[in-house]
Design a protein around this nucleic acid. Structure first.
Length: 206
DNA sequence: GAGTAGATCCTCT
DNA sequence: GAGGATCTACTCA
């Protein structure tokens, strides 16, 4: 198991990076409590040209400033006032691409995750969906701006390989206000994996 | 099993 | 003051 190097995040093809992150291991350590899980669902957000992206049109605010940092940083923000959402910043400095990590398959520290999520036993939704994921892993605004190579937060590769057949691309969730950009196949999930957010309504049906 | 509505509060305009 | 990259419980078939 090795920590993914900075070069992995600094390419300019955020779609490739988003699909390549599937199967990798996301690890957090907080007060010596280690929690980790295999990434099963991601979404690509393609910088200034993507209407669903916080940096669309070059928008730059204190909140999204981290997106303009060099690839390999964590971008965490609060959504709907209650959920933390965890993104991986990609591309070079001043190119604000990001990959939203939506779901993991819990591996290490399951009791800790259950404790944080206030759930009695392990179910597929323990860390499925971006809000549930950050809650289970203990990710908060304190993690925003950190690099993904430190002891408290990193993404590792345990050598597992996924073929193109194992990966499904779908439209992203919850971004219908982004018009045609909402239809782009920028969401990636592992085929047949239970540990994926189970939103039951398709935002495109309307 | 599928669809709907309410909770909740930060950020930006 | 409006809107948002969500989640969960509830209702209905």
């Amino acid at each position: 198991m090795r920590i993914i190097p900075a070069s992995f995040y600094r390419g300019d093809d955020v779609e490739s990076i988003a699909s390549a992150l599937l199967g990798k291991i996301l690890v957090t350590r907080h007060h010596d409590r280690i929690t980790s899980g295999r990434i099963t669902e991601t979404e690509a957000y393609k910088g200034v040209d993507d209407k669903a992206c916080h940096a669309y049109g070059g928008k730059r605010t204190p909140r999204n400033e981290v997106m303009y940092a060099e690839g390999g940083h964590a971008y965490v923000y609060i959504c709907y006032g209650i959920h933390f959402l965890f993104n991986v910043v990609t591309n070079r400095k001043d190119h604000p691409d990001a990959v939203l990590i939506r779901s993991i398959h819990p591996i290490a520290g399951v009791p800790t995750m259950l404790d944080r999520a206030d759930k009695p036993d392990l179910k597929p939704n323990l860390a499925a969906g971006p809000g549930n994921l950050t809650r289970a892993l203990g990710i908060t605004m304190d993690h925003s701006g950190l690099t993904l190579f430190g002891p408290g937060l990193h993404i590792a590769d345990d050598g597992q390989q996924l073929s193109n057949n194992d990966i499904i691309a779908t439209p992203r969730i919850g971004v219908e206000s982004a018009g045609v950009d909402a239809l782009r196949l920028y969401r990636y999930i592992i085929r047949g994996n239970k540990y994926v957010s189970g939103r039951r309504t398709d935002p495109r049906k309307a």
